[in-house]
Amino acid sequence: MESVVRLEDVSVHYYTFTGVVKAVDRVTLDIPRGEFVSFVGESGSGKSTLALALLRLVPPPGRIVSGRIVFNGMDLLSLPEQKMRELRGKSISMVFQDPMTSLDPVRKVGEQIADVYIEHGVTTDMEEALKLAREALEMVGIPGDRVNYYPHQLSGGQRQRVLIAAAVALKPSLLIADEPTTALDVIVQAKIMDLLEDLMKELKMSVILITHDIALAAERSDRIAVMYAGRVVEYGPVDAIIENPLHPYTRGLLESAPDLWGEKRIKGIPGNPPDLRNPPRGCPFHPRCPRRFDPCDKDEPEYVKVDDRIVSCHLYTR
């Protein structure tokens, strides 16, 4: 199985006044080429930081402190900034959570898409770039003449389409979508997800979806990575995870999702995620875990391979 991107031991820390926050903690996994992989977790689990780390855009006071991110055979973390910049928007693209604020309010949307063609050397002519932007808009289902519109003249769904058009304009091999539908209303949400799936097939992209919604992830992905307190606690094919969650946290998440089993009672997970400045010893989930036992509050569980999944839990360490 060929991977589009491989994370090895990646850690991202935020250096705040009150201490070091380990937002992403030693994450290791493979994203297979051409697959749709979802990162699922609560807010603060580190999933958005991980997405930004893939583009090396973690804002200060955050820093990628260790690890390797191997993309097309290159370690992104050791590339010079100039090379990294050339990859952004061309080979790896990103779509953000809030389409209302992710477009520059004082430039026409066409110009903002055209930027991509100019900065990545497709053309030096603005007219030519705007013509390509027109085509990109049509590809995401927006009439081409909207290139002359300002963002405030478009609806939220349309703006997200514009952002997607700019992201896929150069047919990247990896598209990262960070909660792309959270800010939109329900009907628009489904359309945007359909669009992403269509584009993925058409352009032969791999997609990473960042979401807090495990039901959405289950519906759309090939694989799911469950994150908790900066760690990936379970990663594997979607069917296996839905049918037989190995990690108690994954089970908890599934049981608290309303859409999957309509007849079941919704259960929450008692307790709160830990303070990442001062995480608990051992397994970070142990204070909330219904199945904790002897080693959980002492040793941190290693990653274990169970069939085609990896899981980080003492239940499976021996």
Partner: peptide, 22 residues
């Protein structure tokens, strides 16, 4: 500079000089 659209510009590979200009 903390706005979402600035981050979006960066994610599309715009050089810092252009980002600052916008």
């Amino acid at each position: 500079l903390q706005a979402d659209f600035i981050r979006a510009y960066r994610s599309r590979g715009l050089p810092e000089t252009k980002v600052l200009k916008y």
